[in-house]
Design a binder for these strands. Sequence first.
DNA 1: ATAGGGTTAG
Length: 553
Amino acid sequence: MRSIKDGFRFHAHAIKNGITSTVFTSNQLIHLYSKHGFLAEAHKLFDEMPERNVFTWNAIIWAYIKTQNLKQARELFDSAPSKDLVTYNSMLSGYINTDGYETNALKLFIEMQSLNDETRIDEFSLTRMLNLSAKLSMESYGKQLHSYMVKTANNISGFAVSSLIDMYSKCGCFREVCQVFDGCAGVLDLVSKNAMVAACCREGELEMGVNLFWRDLELNDVVSWNTLISGYVQNGCEEDALKLFVHMEENEVRWNEHTIAGLLSACAGLRSLKLGKEVHGWVLKYELGFNPFISSGLVDVYCKCGNMKYAELVYATIGTGNAFSITSMIVGHSSQGNMGEARRLFDSLTEKSSIIWTALFTGYVKSQQCEAVFELLSEFRVKEAMVPDALILISVLGACAIQAALNPGKQIHAYVLRIGIELDEKLVSAMVDMYSKSGNIKYAEKIFQRVTNRDAVIYNIMTAGYAHHGHENQAIQQFEEMLERGVRPDAVTFVALLSACRHCGLVELGEKYFASMTDYNILPEIDHYACMIDLYGRANQLEKAQERQKRRY
DNA sequence: ATAGGGTTAG
Protein backbone atom coordinates (compact mmCIF):
# COMPACT_ATOMS: atom_id res chain seq x y z
CA MET A 1 0.00 0.00 0.00
CA ARG A 2 2.18 2.80 -1.24
CA SER A 3 -0.22 5.25 -2.82
CA ILE A 4 -3.57 6.53 -1.65
CA LYS A 5 -5.10 4.83 -4.67
CA ASP A 6 -3.81 1.44 -3.48
CA GLY A 7 -5.20 2.22 -0.07
CA PHE A 8 -8.69 2.95 -1.30
CA ARG A 9 -8.64 -0.11 -3.56
CA PHE A 10 -7.51 -2.38 -0.74
CA HIS A 11 -10.04 -0.92 1.69
CA ALA A 12 -12.94 -1.35 -0.77
CA HIS A 13 -11.89 -4.90 -1.49
CA ALA A 14 -11.76 -5.76 2.20
CA ILE A 15 -15.22 -4.33 2.84
CA LYS A 16 -16.75 -6.03 -0.20
CA ASN A 17 -15.42 -9.44 0.80
CA GLY A 18 -16.07 -9.08 4.48
CA ILE A 19 -12.41 -9.37 5.35
CA THR A 20 -11.40 -7.93 8.69
CA SER A 21 -8.08 -6.15 8.36
CA THR A 22 -5.42 -6.68 10.96
CA VAL A 23 -4.70 -3.84 13.39
CA PHE A 24 -1.42 -3.35 11.59
CA THR A 25 -3.07 -2.83 8.20
CA SER A 26 -5.75 -0.53 9.56
CA ASN A 27 -3.09 1.58 11.25
CA GLN A 28 -1.33 1.96 7.96
CA LEU A 29 -4.58 2.93 6.27
CA ILE A 30 -5.32 5.58 8.90
CA HIS A 31 -1.89 7.01 8.35
CA LEU A 32 -2.28 6.94 4.58
CA TYR A 33 -5.67 8.66 4.71
CA SER A 34 -4.49 11.42 7.03
CA LYS A 35 -1.33 11.95 4.99
CA HIS A 36 -3.50 12.74 1.98
CA GLY A 37 -5.94 14.92 3.86
CA PHE A 38 -8.81 12.42 4.23
CA LEU A 39 -9.42 13.08 7.90
CA ALA A 40 -13.06 11.92 7.90
CA GLU A 41 -12.15 8.60 6.29
CA ALA A 42 -9.32 8.13 8.76
CA HIS A 43 -11.62 8.76 11.69
CA LYS A 44 -14.37 6.47 10.35
CA LEU A 45 -11.91 3.61 10.08
CA PHE A 46 -10.63 4.37 13.57
CA ASP A 47 -14.18 4.20 14.95
CA GLU A 48 -14.88 0.91 13.24
CA MET A 49 -11.78 -0.87 14.47
CA PRO A 50 -12.69 -3.66 16.93
CA GLU A 51 -9.23 -3.59 18.37
CA ARG A 52 -6.67 -0.78 18.69
CA ASN A 53 -3.12 -0.47 19.89
CA VAL A 54 -0.85 2.43 20.74
CA PHE A 55 0.08 2.84 17.06
CA THR A 56 -3.61 3.31 16.22
CA TRP A 57 -3.94 6.10 18.75
CA ASN A 58 -0.75 7.75 17.58
CA ALA A 59 -1.96 7.67 13.99
CA ILE A 60 -5.34 9.25 14.71
CA ILE A 61 -3.91 11.88 17.07
CA TRP A 62 -1.39 12.78 14.42
CA ALA A 63 -4.17 13.12 11.85
CA TYR A 64 -5.87 15.79 13.99
CA ILE A 65 -2.62 17.60 14.77
CA LYS A 66 -1.73 17.78 11.10
CA THR A 67 -5.00 19.55 10.34
CA GLN A 68 -4.45 21.93 13.27
CA ASN A 69 -7.37 20.53 15.24
CA LEU A 70 -5.47 20.84 18.50
CA LYS A 71 -8.53 20.66 20.76
CA GLN A 72 -9.77 17.36 19.29
CA ALA A 73 -6.24 16.00 19.21
CA ARG A 74 -5.97 16.72 22.92
CA GLU A 75 -9.29 15.03 23.65
CA LEU A 76 -8.10 11.88 21.87
CA PHE A 77 -4.75 12.21 23.63
CA ASP A 78 -6.48 12.30 27.02
CA SER A 79 -8.72 9.36 26.24
CA ALA A 80 -5.97 7.13 24.81
CA PRO A 81 -5.67 4.00 27.00
CA SER A 82 -1.95 3.73 26.40
CA LYS A 83 0.58 6.33 25.41
CA ASP A 84 4.22 6.08 24.51
CA LEU A 85 6.89 8.70 23.89
CA VAL A 86 5.69 9.20 20.30
CA THR A 87 2.20 10.09 21.56
CA TYR A 88 3.64 12.75 23.85
CA ASN A 89 6.07 14.06 21.27
CA SER A 90 3.33 14.34 18.63
CA MET A 91 1.15 16.39 20.96
CA LEU A 92 4.13 18.52 21.94
CA SER A 93 5.01 19.05 18.30
CA GLY A 94 1.46 20.09 17.47
CA TYR A 95 1.43 22.71 20.22
CA ILE A 96 4.77 24.10 19.11
CA ASN A 97 3.73 24.42 15.47
CA THR A 98 0.45 26.15 16.17
CA ASP A 99 0.38 29.82 17.07
CA GLY A 100 -1.32 30.46 20.36
CA TYR A 101 -0.62 27.03 21.85
CA GLU A 102 2.92 27.73 23.05
CA THR A 103 1.93 27.71 26.72
CA ASN A 104 0.34 24.29 26.28
CA ALA A 105 3.64 23.03 24.92
CA LEU A 106 5.53 24.31 27.95
CA LYS A 107 3.02 22.71 30.31
CA LEU A 108 3.10 19.38 28.49
CA PHE A 109 6.89 19.33 28.54
CA ILE A 110 6.86 19.78 32.31
CA GLU A 111 4.34 16.94 32.58
CA MET A 112 6.60 14.74 30.47
CA GLN A 113 9.49 15.23 32.85
CA SER A 114 7.64 13.31 35.56
CA LEU A 115 6.76 10.31 33.39
CA ASN A 116 8.45 6.98 33.92
CA ASP A 117 11.81 6.37 32.37
CA GLU A 118 10.91 4.75 29.06
CA THR A 119 8.41 7.42 28.12
CA ARG A 120 10.09 10.57 29.47
CA ILE A 121 12.07 12.69 27.02
CA ASP A 122 14.31 11.98 24.04
CA GLU A 123 16.26 13.93 21.46
CA PHE A 124 13.08 14.58 19.53
CA SER A 125 11.38 16.26 22.51
CA LEU A 126 14.47 18.32 23.19
CA THR A 127 14.99 19.59 19.64
CA ARG A 128 11.30 20.49 19.39
CA MET A 129 11.64 22.48 22.62
CA LEU A 130 14.65 24.26 21.11
CA ASN A 131 12.41 25.22 18.17
CA LEU A 132 9.94 26.65 20.67
CA SER A 133 12.68 28.59 22.47
CA ALA A 134 13.71 30.05 19.10
CA LYS A 135 10.13 30.98 18.24
CA LEU A 136 9.58 32.75 21.55
CA SER A 137 13.15 34.05 21.89
CA MET A 138 13.57 32.36 25.29
CA GLU A 139 17.32 32.58 25.64
CA SER A 140 17.74 31.15 29.13
CA TYR A 141 15.26 28.34 28.53
CA GLY A 142 17.18 27.40 25.38
CA LYS A 143 20.47 27.44 27.27
CA GLN A 144 19.06 25.13 29.94
CA LEU A 145 17.87 22.72 27.27
CA HIS A 146 21.32 22.83 25.71
CA SER A 147 23.00 21.99 29.02
CA TYR A 148 20.63 19.10 29.54
CA MET A 149 21.34 17.85 26.02
CA VAL A 150 25.09 17.90 26.64
CA LYS A 151 24.61 16.04 29.91
CA THR A 152 22.50 13.33 28.26
CA ALA A 153 24.56 13.17 25.01
CA ASN A 154 21.64 14.38 22.93
CA ASN A 155 23.60 17.19 21.34
CA ILE A 156 25.50 15.46 18.57
CA SER A 157 23.12 14.74 15.70
CA GLY A 158 22.43 16.95 12.70
CA PHE A 159 18.94 17.64 14.11
CA ALA A 160 20.38 18.78 17.42
CA VAL A 161 23.05 20.98 15.83
CA SER A 162 20.73 22.75 13.41
CA SER A 163 18.15 23.35 16.13
CA LEU A 164 20.80 24.70 18.51
CA ILE A 165 22.25 27.04 15.88
CA ASP A 166 18.78 28.27 14.98
CA MET A 167 17.76 28.78 18.61
CA TYR A 168 20.90 30.71 19.58
CA SER A 169 20.73 32.80 16.43
CA LYS A 170 17.08 33.75 16.92
CA CYS A 171 17.78 34.59 20.56
CA GLY A 172 20.57 36.93 19.43
CA CYS A 173 23.46 34.87 20.89
CA PHE A 174 25.89 34.76 17.99
CA ARG A 175 28.85 33.77 20.16
CA GLU A 176 27.04 30.62 21.24
CA VAL A 177 26.08 29.96 17.61
CA CYS A 178 29.78 29.90 16.71
CA GLN A 179 30.61 27.68 19.67
CA VAL A 180 28.05 25.09 18.59
CA PHE A 181 29.21 25.35 14.99
CA ASP A 182 32.89 24.97 15.85
CA GLY A 183 32.20 22.00 18.08
CA CYS A 184 30.20 19.94 15.59
CA ALA A 185 32.66 19.49 12.73
CA GLY A 186 31.90 15.78 12.35
CA VAL A 187 28.13 15.97 12.13
CA LEU A 188 27.66 19.14 10.10
CA ASP A 189 25.07 18.35 7.46
CA LEU A 190 23.27 20.44 4.84
CA VAL A 191 20.48 21.71 7.09
CA SER A 192 22.92 22.71 9.85
CA LYS A 193 25.05 24.48 7.30
CA ASN A 194 22.02 26.37 6.01
CA ALA A 195 21.08 27.32 9.57
CA MET A 196 24.61 28.63 10.07
CA VAL A 197 24.55 30.70 6.86
CA ALA A 198 21.22 32.17 7.98
CA ALA A 199 22.66 32.92 11.43
CA CYS A 200 25.64 34.77 9.92
CA CYS A 201 23.36 36.87 7.70
CA ARG A 202 21.09 37.66 10.63
CA GLU A 203 24.10 38.81 12.65
CA GLY A 204 25.44 40.99 9.82
CA GLU A 205 28.46 38.69 9.35
CA LEU A 206 27.77 38.52 5.65
CA GLU A 207 31.29 37.64 4.59
CA MET A 208 31.39 34.68 6.96
CA GLY A 209 28.08 33.43 5.58
CA VAL A 210 29.23 33.85 1.99
CA ASN A 211 32.45 31.92 2.63
CA LEU A 212 30.55 29.09 4.25
CA PHE A 213 28.10 29.01 1.35
CA TRP A 214 30.83 28.59 -1.26
CA ARG A 215 32.54 25.83 0.75
CA ASP A 216 31.29 22.49 -0.66
CA LEU A 217 29.17 24.17 -3.30
CA GLU A 218 27.72 20.87 -4.43
CA LEU A 219 26.22 20.35 -0.96
CA ASN A 220 23.97 23.39 -1.42
CA ASP A 221 20.27 22.99 -2.09
CA VAL A 222 17.61 25.54 -2.99
CA VAL A 223 17.29 26.59 0.65
CA SER A 224 21.02 27.47 0.77
CA TRP A 225 20.67 29.71 -2.28
CA ASN A 226 17.51 31.34 -0.97
CA THR A 227 19.14 31.92 2.41
CA LEU A 228 22.05 33.79 0.88
CA ILE A 229 19.86 35.75 -1.56
CA SER A 230 17.77 37.00 1.37
CA GLY A 231 20.93 37.48 3.43
CA TYR A 232 22.32 39.86 0.84
CA VAL A 233 19.07 41.83 0.85
CA GLN A 234 18.98 41.94 4.68
CA ASN A 235 22.44 43.48 4.62
CA GLY A 236 21.71 46.06 1.93
CA CYS A 237 23.53 44.26 -0.89
CA GLU A 238 20.58 43.93 -3.28
CA GLU A 239 22.79 43.88 -6.39
CA ASP A 240 24.66 40.84 -5.07
CA ALA A 241 21.35 39.15 -4.35
CA LEU A 242 20.33 39.54 -7.99
CA LYS A 243 23.71 38.34 -9.22
CA LEU A 244 23.42 35.26 -7.02
CA PHE A 245 20.01 34.54 -8.50
CA VAL A 246 21.50 34.56 -12.01
CA HIS A 247 24.25 32.29 -10.74
CA MET A 248 21.65 29.99 -9.27
CA GLU A 249 20.03 29.53 -12.66
CA GLU A 250 23.43 28.88 -14.23
CA ASN A 251 23.96 26.15 -11.63
CA GLU A 252 20.63 24.68 -12.62
CA VAL A 253 19.15 24.99 -9.17
CA ARG A 254 15.39 25.28 -9.50
CA TRP A 255 13.96 28.38 -7.76
CA ASN A 256 10.86 28.28 -5.55
CA GLU A 257 8.50 30.71 -3.81
CA HIS A 258 11.10 31.76 -1.25
CA THR A 259 13.41 32.75 -4.09
CA ILE A 260 10.78 35.00 -5.65
CA ALA A 261 9.97 36.62 -2.31
CA GLY A 262 13.69 37.33 -1.86
CA LEU A 263 13.92 38.87 -5.32
CA LEU A 264 10.96 41.12 -4.54
CA SER A 265 12.66 42.42 -1.39
CA ALA A 266 15.74 43.14 -3.50
CA CYS A 267 13.63 45.11 -6.01
CA ALA A 268 11.98 47.03 -3.18
CA GLY A 269 15.36 47.86 -1.64
CA LEU A 270 16.66 49.06 -4.99
CA ARG A 271 13.45 51.01 -5.65
CA SER A 272 13.55 49.41 -9.08
CA LEU A 273 10.19 49.61 -10.80
CA LYS A 274 11.58 47.95 -13.91
CA LEU A 275 12.86 44.85 -12.11
CA GLY A 276 9.77 44.75 -9.94
CA LYS A 277 7.57 44.58 -13.01
CA GLU A 278 9.76 41.83 -14.43
CA VAL A 279 9.33 39.71 -11.31
CA HIS A 280 5.63 40.54 -11.34
CA GLY A 281 5.52 38.97 -14.79
CA TRP A 282 6.97 35.77 -13.36
CA VAL A 283 4.45 35.79 -10.54
CA LEU A 284 1.64 35.96 -13.08
CA LYS A 285 3.18 33.37 -15.37
CA TYR A 286 3.72 30.82 -12.61
CA GLU A 287 0.58 31.78 -10.64
CA LEU A 288 2.37 32.59 -7.40
CA GLY A 289 0.06 35.38 -6.24
CA PHE A 290 -1.64 33.16 -3.66
CA ASN A 291 1.54 33.17 -1.57
CA PRO A 292 1.10 35.95 1.03
CA PHE A 293 4.83 36.72 1.09
CA ILE A 294 4.84 37.21 -2.65
CA SER A 295 1.62 39.24 -2.91
CA SER A 296 2.66 41.56 -0.12
CA GLY A 297 6.17 41.72 -1.60
CA LEU A 298 4.70 42.98 -4.87
CA VAL A 299 2.58 45.58 -3.08
CA ASP A 300 5.70 46.67 -1.24
CA VAL A 301 7.81 47.04 -4.40
CA TYR A 302 5.25 49.30 -6.04
CA CYS A 303 4.80 51.35 -2.86
CA LYS A 304 8.55 51.78 -2.39
CA CYS A 305 8.83 52.88 -6.02
CA GLY A 306 6.08 55.42 -5.40
CA ASN A 307 3.77 53.85 -7.96
CA MET A 308 0.60 53.79 -5.89
CA LYS A 309 -1.59 53.05 -8.89
CA TYR A 310 0.02 49.65 -9.44
CA ALA A 311 0.26 49.06 -5.71
CA GLU A 312 -3.45 49.68 -5.38
CA LEU A 313 -4.18 47.30 -8.24
CA VAL A 314 -2.13 44.44 -6.79
CA TYR A 315 -3.47 45.13 -3.32
CA ALA A 316 -7.07 44.96 -4.51
CA THR A 317 -6.58 41.72 -6.41
CA ILE A 318 -4.30 39.64 -4.20
CA GLY A 319 -3.09 41.67 -1.22
CA THR A 320 -6.26 42.44 0.76
CA GLY A 321 -6.32 41.19 4.31
CA ASN A 322 -2.57 40.69 4.52
CA ALA A 323 -1.18 42.79 7.37
CA PHE A 324 2.08 43.37 5.53
CA SER A 325 0.35 44.56 2.37
CA ILE A 326 -1.76 46.96 4.41
CA THR A 327 1.25 48.36 6.23
CA SER A 328 3.10 48.85 2.95
CA MET A 329 0.08 50.62 1.48
CA ILE A 330 -0.30 52.96 4.45
CA VAL A 331 3.40 53.79 4.43
CA GLY A 332 3.31 54.15 0.64
CA HIS A 333 0.37 56.56 0.63
CA SER A 334 1.94 58.50 3.49
CA SER A 335 5.25 58.92 1.72
CA GLN A 336 3.37 60.27 -1.31
CA GLY A 337 1.59 62.71 0.98
CA ASN A 338 -1.77 61.01 0.36
CA MET A 339 -2.75 61.07 4.01
CA GLY A 340 -6.44 60.94 3.06
CA GLU A 341 -5.94 57.62 1.33
CA ALA A 342 -3.76 56.34 4.17
CA ARG A 343 -6.43 57.30 6.67
CA ARG A 344 -9.22 55.71 4.62
CA LEU A 345 -7.34 52.42 4.51
CA PHE A 346 -6.58 52.66 8.22
CA ASP A 347 -10.25 53.24 9.05
CA SER A 348 -11.31 50.24 6.99
CA LEU A 349 -9.53 47.89 9.38
CA THR A 350 -11.50 46.53 12.31
CA GLU A 351 -8.40 45.51 14.20
CA LYS A 352 -5.23 47.53 14.16
CA SER A 353 -1.84 46.27 15.23
CA SER A 354 0.68 48.66 16.75
CA ILE A 355 2.61 48.46 13.46
CA ILE A 356 -0.39 49.86 11.59
CA TRP A 357 -0.82 52.65 14.15
CA THR A 358 2.87 53.49 13.87
CA ALA A 359 2.63 53.63 10.07
CA LEU A 360 -0.11 56.25 10.27
CA PHE A 361 1.67 58.28 12.97
CA THR A 362 4.86 58.33 10.90
CA GLY A 363 2.90 59.39 7.82
CA TYR A 364 1.36 62.39 9.56
CA VAL A 365 4.73 63.52 10.88
CA LYS A 366 6.37 63.16 7.47
CA SER A 367 3.67 65.25 5.86
CA GLN A 368 3.99 67.74 8.71
CA GLN A 369 0.38 67.36 9.90
CA CYS A 370 1.14 67.90 13.56
CA GLU A 371 -2.41 68.46 14.78
CA ALA A 372 -3.37 65.14 13.19
CA VAL A 373 -0.56 63.48 15.18
CA PHE A 374 -1.88 64.82 18.48
CA GLU A 375 -5.45 63.87 17.58
CA LEU A 376 -4.32 60.38 16.63
CA LEU A 377 -2.62 60.01 20.00
CA SER A 378 -5.89 60.81 21.81
CA GLU A 379 -7.69 58.38 19.54
CA PHE A 380 -5.11 55.69 20.27
CA ARG A 381 -5.51 56.13 24.00
CA VAL A 382 -9.28 55.92 23.81
CA LYS A 383 -9.49 52.95 21.44
CA GLU A 384 -6.58 50.74 22.40
CA ALA A 385 -5.99 49.24 25.79
CA MET A 386 -2.25 49.64 25.25
CA VAL A 387 0.44 52.04 26.33
CA PRO A 388 1.81 53.89 23.27
CA ASP A 389 5.18 52.37 22.51
CA ALA A 390 8.50 54.08 21.81
CA LEU A 391 7.88 54.27 18.06
CA ILE A 392 4.60 56.12 18.48
CA LEU A 393 6.12 58.49 21.02
CA ILE A 394 8.96 59.25 18.60
CA SER A 395 6.36 60.42 16.09
CA VAL A 396 4.64 62.56 18.68
CA LEU A 397 7.96 64.09 19.73
CA GLY A 398 8.63 64.75 16.04
CA ALA A 399 5.38 66.68 15.81
CA CYS A 400 6.33 68.68 18.93
CA ALA A 401 9.69 69.48 17.37
CA ILE A 402 8.08 70.75 14.14
CA GLN A 403 5.70 72.97 16.09
CA ALA A 404 8.33 73.97 18.64
CA ALA A 405 5.76 72.86 21.21
CA LEU A 406 7.80 72.71 24.41
CA ASN A 407 5.01 71.90 26.87
CA PRO A 408 3.49 68.95 25.03
CA GLY A 409 7.02 67.69 24.48
CA LYS A 410 7.76 67.91 28.19
CA GLN A 411 4.56 66.00 28.91
CA ILE A 412 5.72 63.18 26.66
CA HIS A 413 9.09 63.20 28.41
CA ALA A 414 7.38 62.96 31.79
CA TYR A 415 5.13 60.21 30.49
CA VAL A 416 8.12 58.18 29.31
CA LEU A 417 9.73 58.49 32.74
CA ARG A 418 6.51 57.67 34.59
CA ILE A 419 5.63 54.57 32.57
CA GLY A 420 9.25 53.47 32.53
CA ILE A 421 9.56 53.09 28.76
CA GLU A 422 13.11 52.21 27.86
CA LEU A 423 15.02 55.16 26.42
CA ASP A 424 16.63 53.57 23.39
CA GLU A 425 18.84 55.45 20.92
CA LYS A 426 15.96 56.54 18.72
CA LEU A 427 13.74 57.77 21.54
CA VAL A 428 16.60 59.68 23.14
CA SER A 429 17.46 61.29 19.82
CA ALA A 430 13.86 62.34 19.28
CA MET A 431 13.81 63.81 22.79
CA VAL A 432 17.03 65.80 22.29
CA ASP A 433 15.75 67.07 18.93
CA MET A 434 12.42 68.10 20.42
CA TYR A 435 14.04 70.10 23.24
CA SER A 436 16.51 71.68 20.88
CA LYS A 437 13.92 72.69 18.29
CA SER A 438 11.54 73.91 20.98
CA GLY A 439 14.15 76.41 22.09
CA ASN A 440 15.45 74.61 25.17
CA ILE A 441 19.02 73.79 24.26
CA LYS A 442 19.97 73.35 27.92
CA TYR A 443 17.60 70.41 28.41
CA ALA A 444 18.70 68.94 25.09
CA GLU A 445 22.30 69.16 26.26
CA LYS A 446 21.53 67.53 29.62
CA ILE A 447 19.91 64.53 28.01
CA PHE A 448 22.61 64.30 25.37
CA GLN A 449 25.33 64.24 28.00
CA ARG A 450 23.80 61.25 29.72
CA VAL A 451 24.00 59.21 26.52
CA THR A 452 27.23 57.23 26.53
CA ASN A 453 26.90 55.42 23.21
CA ARG A 454 26.53 58.32 20.81
CA ASP A 455 25.85 57.53 17.18
CA ALA A 456 26.00 59.82 14.13
CA VAL A 457 22.29 60.65 14.38
CA ILE A 458 22.44 62.05 17.89
CA TYR A 459 25.65 63.97 17.15
CA ASN A 460 23.96 65.49 14.10
CA ILE A 461 20.96 66.54 16.17
CA MET A 462 23.15 68.15 18.82
CA THR A 463 25.43 69.85 16.26
CA ALA A 464 22.43 71.26 14.39
CA GLY A 465 20.90 72.33 17.70
CA TYR A 466 24.00 74.29 18.71
CA ALA A 467 24.19 75.85 15.25
CA HIS A 468 20.55 76.97 15.45
CA HIS A 469 21.03 78.49 18.86
CA GLY A 470 24.07 80.44 17.76
CA HIS A 471 26.59 78.30 19.66
CA GLU A 472 28.87 77.79 16.68
CA ASN A 473 31.92 76.86 18.71
CA GLN A 474 30.08 74.11 20.49
CA ALA A 475 28.74 72.84 17.19
CA ILE A 476 32.27 72.55 15.86
CA GLN A 477 33.38 70.99 19.12
CA GLN A 478 30.71 68.28 18.69
CA PHE A 479 32.12 67.50 15.30
CA GLU A 480 35.64 67.20 16.67
CA GLU A 481 34.43 64.92 19.47
CA MET A 482 32.61 62.81 16.94
CA LEU A 483 35.79 62.28 14.98
CA GLU A 484 37.79 61.56 18.12
CA ARG A 485 35.35 58.86 19.13
CA GLY A 486 35.52 57.27 15.70
CA VAL A 487 31.91 58.00 14.74
CA ARG A 488 31.65 58.37 10.98
CA PRO A 489 30.09 61.67 9.84
CA ASP A 490 27.41 61.52 7.13
CA ALA A 491 25.76 64.00 4.75
CA VAL A 492 23.54 65.40 7.50
CA THR A 493 26.57 66.09 9.72
CA PHE A 494 27.98 68.44 7.13
CA VAL A 495 24.72 70.32 6.66
CA ALA A 496 24.73 71.02 10.41
CA LEU A 497 28.39 71.93 10.40
CA LEU A 498 28.23 74.20 7.36
CA SER A 499 25.19 75.99 8.70
CA ALA A 500 27.13 76.67 11.91
CA CYS A 501 29.90 78.22 9.77
CA ARG A 502 27.56 80.37 7.75
CA HIS A 503 25.90 81.77 10.86
CA CYS A 504 29.11 83.32 12.05
CA GLY A 505 30.82 83.92 8.74
CA LEU A 506 33.58 81.33 9.07
CA VAL A 507 34.33 81.24 5.34
CA GLU A 508 37.66 79.47 5.43
CA LEU A 509 36.58 76.85 7.93
CA GLY A 510 33.43 76.24 5.90
CA GLU A 511 35.50 75.76 2.77
CA LYS A 512 37.74 73.36 4.62
CA TYR A 513 34.82 71.26 5.83
CA PHE A 514 33.16 71.36 2.44
CA ALA A 515 36.34 70.12 0.80
CA SER A 516 36.80 67.41 3.41
CA MET A 517 33.47 65.78 2.54
CA THR A 518 35.12 63.74 -0.18
CA ASP A 519 37.45 62.24 2.45
CA TYR A 520 34.38 60.56 3.91
CA ASN A 521 32.99 59.52 0.52
CA ILE A 522 30.09 61.94 0.81
CA LEU A 523 28.86 63.72 -2.29
CA PRO A 524 27.69 67.30 -1.65
CA GLU A 525 23.93 67.62 -2.15
CA ILE A 526 21.71 70.63 -2.69
CA ASP A 527 21.64 71.53 1.03
CA HIS A 528 25.41 71.67 1.22
CA TYR A 529 25.61 73.95 -1.82
CA ALA A 530 22.89 76.15 -0.36
CA CYS A 531 24.96 76.53 2.82
CA MET A 532 28.11 77.41 0.88
CA ILE A 533 26.32 79.93 -1.33
CA ASP A 534 24.78 81.56 1.72
CA LEU A 535 28.16 81.57 3.44
CA TYR A 536 29.78 83.42 0.53
CA GLY A 537 26.80 85.71 0.15
CA ARG A 538 26.97 86.85 3.76
CA ALA A 539 30.70 87.40 3.47
CA ASN A 540 30.28 89.56 0.36
CA GLN A 541 32.03 87.04 -1.84
CA LEU A 542 29.38 86.79 -4.52
CA GLU A 543 31.82 85.72 -7.23
CA LYS A 544 32.60 82.57 -5.29
CA ALA A 545 28.92 81.99 -4.68
CA GLN A 546 28.23 82.18 -8.41
CA GLU A 547 31.15 79.88 -9.06
CA ARG A 548 29.68 77.27 -6.69
CA GLN A 549 26.30 77.58 -8.28
CA LYS A 550 27.74 77.04 -11.76
CA ARG A 551 29.64 73.97 -10.65
CA ARG A 552 26.55 72.55 -9.05
CA TYR A 553 24.30 72.66 -12.09
C1' DA B 1 6.74 -4.88 9.92
C1' DT B 2 3.37 0.49 11.79
C1' DA B 3 4.38 6.90 13.75
C1' DG B 4 7.26 11.97 14.81
C1' DG B 5 11.87 16.10 13.94
C1' DG B 6 15.98 20.44 12.13
C1' DT B 7 17.32 25.11 7.70
C1' DT B 8 15.18 29.98 3.81
C1' DA B 9 10.79 35.30 3.55
C1' DG B 10 8.19 40.77 6.43
